Simulated assay, not measured.
Amino acid sequence: MALTKADRNILRLMQQDATITLSELAEQVGLSPSSAQRRLQKLREDKVILRDVSIVDPKKVGGAVSMLVEVELERDRPELLPPFQRWVAETPEVQEAWGTSGRGDYTLVILAQSVDHFDALADRMMELNPNIRKFTTSVVLKTLKRGLVVPVE
């Protein structure tokens, strides 16, 4: 799908505040409300917009410790990869996960209520995934930037 200037403006505005009214969106983009609605619907149908979510402050709901976990897998057991990937997808504490190059095979962003909570989670991770060779954890001391905004220039 080729994005128009109006599509890009809609994406920029929706990433800033997905609760913007259709009238406000149309006005800021310079379209009629019906045209803005059609474009927005098309962006959703084409999976350019994957979903609209609310961003919650983790400290206000008990998730106060962020960890970066680098996981190294046993490479000679590829049949054990799907269970690990399922565990990642099904574990709510895993906020983000990437297959990576470098020392580890995967990097996970984990949000835990405490170090003890993370310790129990790590024990479950190892118990349920026998193909994990090792993992290293870094505790996030300070968040300088957090965001999900994709540049659409």
Rank of each mutant, 00 (worst) to 15 (best):
P151S: 01
M126F: 00
G99H: 13
Q16R: 11
Q41P: 02
L22E: 12
V69H: 13
S54W: 00
E45I: 10
A64V: 13
G102V: 07
Q41S: 13
L108I: 13
K42L: 04
T91N: 15
N129C: 01
R75H: 10
E127V: 03
V48M: 05
L25P: 06
D116M: 04
P33F: 01
V149E: 15
E45A: 14
M126K: 14
A36Q: 00
T4M: 02
L22K: 11
S23D: 08
R12K: 13
D105S: 14
E74S: 14
P130G: 02
A26Q: 06
K47T: 04
M14T: 02
S23T: 12
Q95L: 04
K59G: 15
W98Q: 15
G102K: 12
N9R: 12
D116A: 15
G99T: 15
M125Y: 08
V65I: 13
P33W: 03
I132P: 12
T136S: 15
M1E: 02
V94D: 00
L43S: 05
G30E: 02
E45Y: 13
T100G: 00
W87Q: 04
E153H: 03
D76F: 03
R39H: 07
P92E: 08
P33C: 06
A2V: 14
P92S: 13
A6V: 03
E70T: 07
G30K: 11
P58N: 07
K42H: 09
A26N: 06
I49Y: 00
A120T: 10
V94A: 01
V29T: 09
K59P: 03
V109G: 10
A120L: 07
I20W: 10
V65H: 14
V88R: 14
R146W: 05
V56A: 10
L22M: 12
V65F: 03
L81I: 11
S23G: 10
R51G: 11
T143M: 09
E96Y: 07
V48A: 00
G104K: 14
R51D: 15
K60I: 01
V149I: 14
A89K: 15
Q28W: 09
Q16D: 08
D17P: 00
A36D: 01
K145C: 10
V65A: 11
I55T: 13
A120F: 00
G63M: 15
I20H: 10
R44Q: 04
A18G: 10
E96D: 11
R39S: 01
V71T: 07
F84D: 06
V71Y: 02
R75N: 07
V94P: 08
A26L: 03
L148I: 04
N131W: 07
K60G: 01
S32C: 10
D105A: 14
A26V: 02
F118K: 13
R38Q: 10
I55M: 08
L50H: 11
S32K: 12
E45P: 11
L141V: 05
E90Y: 09
P33N: 01
L80R: 04
D17L: 02
K5S: 09
P92L: 12
T100F: 02
G99Y: 00
Q85G: 09
R75T: 06
L25F: 01
A26P: 09
T137W: 03
E24H: 06
Q85H: 12
D123E: 11
S66A: 00
V29K: 09
E72C: 05
E27C: 08
R39N: 01
